[in-house]
Design a protein around this nucleic acid. Structure first.
Length: 344
DNA sequence: TATGCGTGGTA
DNA sequence: TTACCAAGCAT
């Protein structure tokens, strides 16, 4: 067993670093706006899923000022499908605050005070954009630390300990001088070598320093607390068109599930399959099919119905009606995009 | 501290 | 098909 060498990790990073759209080339200066935007999008979201959204978002809102000036509906529409929609609301609020103060704060405390920025993202932006010598602890770094130090305590309970252990990794002179590279080197190590399943220990620059590798338990760590079962819920969604053929959508409440996003109208989802009686003012009601969708904490069976509705009845049915002219409207979260696309 | 909050890829 | 899980945050 050796000590994990910051120099060895950085040498590996210089040879094997991933090329990513939000990442600058060696020698270039990072744009805090792009670093922040990418970090928000990457929260609990894979690199592959983020890439197209990042490109479209940056094209639509090239600067923090452009984003701050944008309308909320445009921001939500650009986020639709990416999930965790409170991120979009906080992103916009954060952009307004940052634009008003003339740029991002460059301290961890200043960053963490902004909406949507927590302990991880504050340290990631501080390290990547401003070179602060801190180790941002995300799921990758947790896994690397759990294996490197053979921490057998399960997460999430072990998180504080793993974070403290991770902070011991960047004490060397090279990690201090290359804080941005060092943080991203840890991400890349976790994403390409020290992977959740079947880690490529033979290729790891820290193989000789890894306690879990020495014990032959690298693939088993980190341990996780048992998960709770995912309940089943049921719902109904109406695809209602007015006499002109426009589709009735509603703007959902700003907080909570799919908060702030557009959706199809329908009764609240329940644990039992609901009665599908059409609401008042709906004619030519017809069942189209069922959409199955899995959220983080429950699964949903959504029965989809077509029908016709008048403008007055629509106002009674939907708190904030939005009429869509498009044959297949965009800007909907995944669940409702599936329901709208259901053939029928 | 525990829970609520999306979506898509992979084994 | 099921289960897991990915650059977490807010409350």
């Amino acid at each position: 067993m050796t000590t994990p060498s910051d120099r060895a990790l950085l040498r590996w990073y210089d040879r094997h670093r991933r090329v990513l759209p939000w990442r600058v080339l060696p020698g270039e200066t990072a744009d805090p706006y792009r670093v922040w935007l990418s970090e928000i999008m990457l929260q609990q979201t894979t690199v592959a899923a983020v890439k197209p959204y990042y490109a479209r978002f940056l094209a639509a809102f090239p600067t923090i000022d452009a984003l701050a000036r944008a309308g909320e509906a445009d921001v939500f529409a650009a986020w639709a499908g990416l999930g965790y929609y409170s991120r979009a609301r906080n992103l916009h609020a954060c952009a307004k605050l940052v634009a008003a103060r003339g740029g991002f704060p460059d301290t961890i405390a200043g960053l963490e005070a902004l909406p949507g920025i927590g302990p991880y993202t504050a340290r990631a932006v501080a390290a990547i954009a401003f070179g602060a010598p801190v180790v941002p602890v995300d799921g990758n770094v947790e896994r690397v630390a759990a294996r490197l130090f053979a921490v057998a305590e399960p997460v999430p309970g072990a998180r504080p300990r793993l974070a403290a252990l991770a902070q011991t990794l960047n004490t060397g002179a090279e990690a201090q001088a290359r804080a941005s590279d060092f943080a991203q080197a840890l991400f890349d190590l976790g994403a390409t070598i020290c992977t959740p399943r079947s880690p490529a220990c033979a290729l790891c620059p820290w193989r000789d320093a890894c306690a879990a590798q020495a014990q032959g338990i690298a693939a088993e760590l980190p341990l996780r607390a048992p998960k709770v079962a995912r309940p089943q819920r049921f719902g109904i969604a109406w695809r209602l068109r007015d006499p002109a053929g426009r589709l009735l959508l509603e703007r959902r409440p700003p907080r909570g599930l799919l908060g702030g996003m557009l959706g199809l109208p329908g009764p609240a989802w329940t644990a039992e399959r609901p009665d599908a009686a059409p609401p008042a003012g709906v004619n030519d009601c017809r069942e189209i099919g069922t959409v199955r969708h899995v959220f983080t904490h429950f699964a949903l069976d959504l029965q989809v119905f077509d029908g016709r509705i008048g403008l007055e009845a629509a106002v009674d049915l939907v708190a904030t009606p939005v009429w869509s002219d498009a044959a297949s409207p965009t800007g909907l979260p995944g669940l409702f995009a599936k329901a709208v696309a259901l053939p029928g």
